[in-house]
């Protein structure tokens, strides 16, 4: 039950994108198509799970004063693994995500989980925490990128919806991302405050 709580927490109550507003930079940058959103979400989830497990296992061995460099090395390792595997097995996706896969290293969501959760709790709970956070990040990315892809490019998953629809370009550019995220956060705040 406690495990399930850790999992659900990341998906909704402490959703990294909508509730904690962490990792917004990659969210703004890659949410131009649903495929990108899914790719980024899966890559970030892999890094989260990997680094959470590892940090949790070695948490008692790490001196408090050098914990941040230790966490960063662990995170960077998993990010590089994810990057190399994406380059090898999904070259097209890796190309369209470009720089943002290696940049997961500096995603404050990942370091945040290492610092706030897995450095304090045992591995199993850390895995559920990472999975929840990763899933929360992924569905947020998919939702934002679906809205932007439909409105800004007139396609969904790369398939043209309507030939006669002239998409407003700003939705695919940075302002569209900021507007979408802002409105969604507003909507979610409204829903939660009414409960």
């Amino acid at each position: 039950m406690k495990m399930l709580g850790e999992f659900v927490k990341g998906v909704w109550r402490e959703n990294p994108t909508f509730r904690l507003a962490l990792g917004l930079c990659p969210t703004l940058a890659v949410s131009t198509s649903v495929i990108n959103g899914i790719g980024m979400g899966v890559a970030a989830t892999f890094v989260l799970v990997g680094s959470n497990i590892f940090v949790s296992i070695i948490r008692s061995k790490i001196p408090n004063k050098v914990r941040i460099p230790c966490f960063i090395v662990v995170i960077a390792t998993f990010v590089t693994i994810a990057d190399l595997f994406m380059k090898a097995y999904t070259p097209a996706l890796s190309r369209s995500l470009g720089m943002f896969v290696p940049l997961i290293v500096v995603n404050c969501m990942v370091l945040g989980r290492a610092e706030a959760f897995s450095s304090k709790y045992p591995p199993l709970r850390s895995i559920f925490d990472a999975l929840g956070m990763g899933l929360g990040f992924t569905w947020a990315l998919i939702l934002i990128s679906a809205i932007r892809e439909v409105l800004g490019n007139g396609t969904i998953m790369g398939v043209l919806i309507n030939k006669n629809f002239q998409p407003p370009l700003f939705m695919i550019l940075a302002p569209g991302a900021l507007l979408t995220i802002g409105l969604l956060i507003g909507l979610i705040n409204y829903i939660t405050s009414r409960r």
């Binding site: 061995k61 790490i62 001196p63 050098v66 460099p69 230790c70 090395v73 662990v74 390792t77």
Partner: peptide, 15 residues
């Protein structure tokens, strides 16, 4: 501190 960091970096490099 140095030893801990070096060990972690060594493991990371291997992987």
């Amino acid at each position: 501190f140095g030893i801990v960091l070096a060990l972690i970096c060594f493991a990371a490099t291997l992987v």
